[in-house]
Amino acid sequence: MTNANIFHHVHDTRKLYRRLLDSMAKPGKINTIADLLRGVPESCPCSSGTYALAQTLLDQQVSFYYASQELNADAAERAIEWTTGSHHTASHAADYLFIDTPPEMDEIDSIMQSVRIGTLAEPEKSATIALHVRRLSGADDLALPIILRGPGINGWHLLSVDGMNMEWLRLRSERNREYPTGCDFILFDDDGQIAALPRTTLIERRDF
């Protein structure tokens, strides 16, 4: 019924949403969206993960911020604006932030210091950060192994990440100090795997 080669704005966004919801409800749980990313046009100036997440989450009702060191950020911004109707804005004002390639330390700081975390009365007026990392794994086999606890997790959960600056997590716990305010993270990797870290998740670094 649907052209399998093209990322379908009805069916593929729905499938992606279901897996994202599953990851958000079970923090640290890895779901794959690799099958859906095959439909992302090759000409897309941003990563296929960003493209697919943007198609799923964005429309003219919300705003986004895009950052990338390596890719052509201007072209990516425009492509996302055209395909979703959403508008690009500064990182402190955006509803969704897409961080496609690892930014410098001071940029992480400036994003995290100003990112919206909502208010106690309206904690939903916070931003969601979609962070592109190199790899995600459920085993203790990557550079940054973390132990997760909180709602959605039965006891504790192990997640390992490659290509994610520890600074993100340090500032995340700083900004998320006064629950329910805080920001939520979506992690996606080069292999089309996703995981989520909602604001309720407590993270400790696993050091052996």
Binding site: L20, M24, A25, L57, D59, V62, S126, R199, T200
Partner: peptide, 21 residues
């Protein structure tokens, strides 16, 4: 319509991140 679905989905993801709110 897809716009309505997106809004409900965004809201649901937020709801999951703030249990009971």
């Amino acid at each position: 319509d897809e716009g309505s679905k997106k809004e409900i989905r965004r809201t649901t993801l937020k709801a999951v991140a703030i249990p009971g709110y």
